[in-house]
Design a protein around this nucleic acid. Structure first.
Lengths: 255, 255
DNA sequence: GATTATGCGTTTGTATACAAATAATGCAAA
DNA sequence: TTTGCATTATTTGTATACAAACGCATAATC
């Protein structure tokens, strides 16, 4: 219970703390990554004090990070009852995908118009990184990088509100994939990502949008959204009940 | 300078403070309304301590409210340099409107499918309130209620991510209208709002979307987005220079 | 006289102490 | 044994104290 991760950078409180805002980002990124890696299961309670001790910062910083995660619907913030890792329902997942199709279509059209050569190069590099992560077997990083590709595309589109919305949608999608993706068969999204870049570079809007929509279909089809995801893990099955955290009594193994 | 608004509800700290979260909302709402009423001009600095004294709460609460406003791009949060009322540029305004057209189209289509009779009644009531505000000459409340109509419509559409995005877009639109709307001629949006409800109630998707798009056009056409909004207020005119703050050299009035 | 250096005052960033609420535990009674 | 209640303990909500950063003003130097 009291295994303690080494604080990432904390030792001297006064030494590096000068750069403001950085600590938030680090805590945010680590929690987010832990969720994608499924080291933090949906429903897990995120205690402010425990996290503060782990990361070597005060609850103030943790609170800011949780607030940001909550805004992206990756964690759920319940008044007076703390934060838990979100466990999106099938219906919530469907709503996210509906919004994503809408946004990705717009982003693709704008990117065909506005993406610069430099941005396209950066996108290609991201796809390579993504492919490497999956081939290394680092699924969490792969999912994250796949999301960052779509975020980068939004930046290439150049519409600030869309970028912000896309950030939230991508985060939620990553969580949904981590939670619902069936089988561990390779993601393969990097292949579709590359084709998409080609179409954008060729300024072929129709083709790019078509590829993007098929890409969305593929992501969708890899998920078990038809039924309530017949998991073989009792813990996962009852995670929505366990949110309130009941010591070790979660599995009625004994009685 | 030191005129102090009476604290909204604060007197006994222990008495009512039990309901958590409420204070944030109150502070948020008051600042937001003040911005819409243009009692807080774009570029105005929002000191945490000053606001805390005005509202009778600590900086902690103010900070949360500012954080929320910043997330909706209504205030700008500059690290180590405090918060200022946002002053969206013409380009930013165009981006917001682009996103709004996209979102409103989707929302309208979904609302035609899902809006209940009760929701439609609530929408009609909101339009009446909006009309009353404008006829009272309360422009700020009118702009705010007009925005809340669109937000309510998003709720009727029933897609959570869209609701969240719409909230941000509506806030920004309100700020843009407050900043760029030409002439004080009546808003008249309530008339278009009523027609829109009729079309939704008739489950006429094509008509509803058409009305919504024309409604967007009308809002757009009332704004001075063609040139840099020839304001007669020096403060507003140079607010974009004052943000980054370059000594007093921003206005070469004297030398 | 202009420009850079330095000190002071103000404002924000972070940690922490205290208060309030919620959840857990134990006891008593049916 | 179970159910309800009271007490205890843990956790969150808020305020505040302290530290660091920033802006401004004055002064010193070229």
């Amino acid at each position: 219970m009291n295994e303690q991760l080494q604080p990432l950078k904390k030792p001297t409180r006064t030494g590096k703390a000068g750069r403001s805002g950085t600590q938030d980002d680090i805590v945010y990124a680590h929690i987010f990554e832990a969720i994608l890696e499924q080291r933090l299961a949906p429903g897990t309670k995120l205690s402010e004090e425990a996290l503060g001790e782990i990361f070597g910062v005060s609850r103030t910083i943790i609170r800011r990070a949780l607030s940001r995660l909550a805004h992206e619907s990756v964690v759920l913030l319940r008044p007076n009852r703390g934060a838990v890792v979100a466990s999106p329902t099938v219906e919530e997942a469907r709503q996210v995908f509906f919004s994503r199709r809408m946004v990705e279509r717009a982003i693709t059209e704008l990117a065909v118009e506005h993406a610069t050569a430099e941005q396209l190069n950066e996108l290609r590099q991201m796809v390579r990184d993504e492919r490497d992560s999956f081939s290394r077997g680092d699924r969490g990083a792969g999912i994250r990088l796949s999301g960052e590709f779509h975020l980068k595309l939004a930046e290439a589109a150049g519409n600030a509100p869309l970028i912000s919305f896309q950030r939230s949608l991508v985060s939620q999608t990553s969580l949904i994939i981590a939670q619902y993706e069936s089988g561990n068969r390779s993601h393969c999204s990097y292949d579709e990502h590359m084709q998409l870049i080609d179409a954008i570079e060729a300024r072929d809007a129709a083709q790019a949008v078509s590829l993007m929509m098929h890409h969305m279909d593929h992501i969708d089809s890899k998920l078990n959204l038809d039924e309530e995801s017949a998991s073989d893990d009792l813990h996962a099955v009852f995670s929505h009940l366990l949110q309130t955290k009941k010591r070790g009594s979660s599995v009625p193994a004994k009685g």
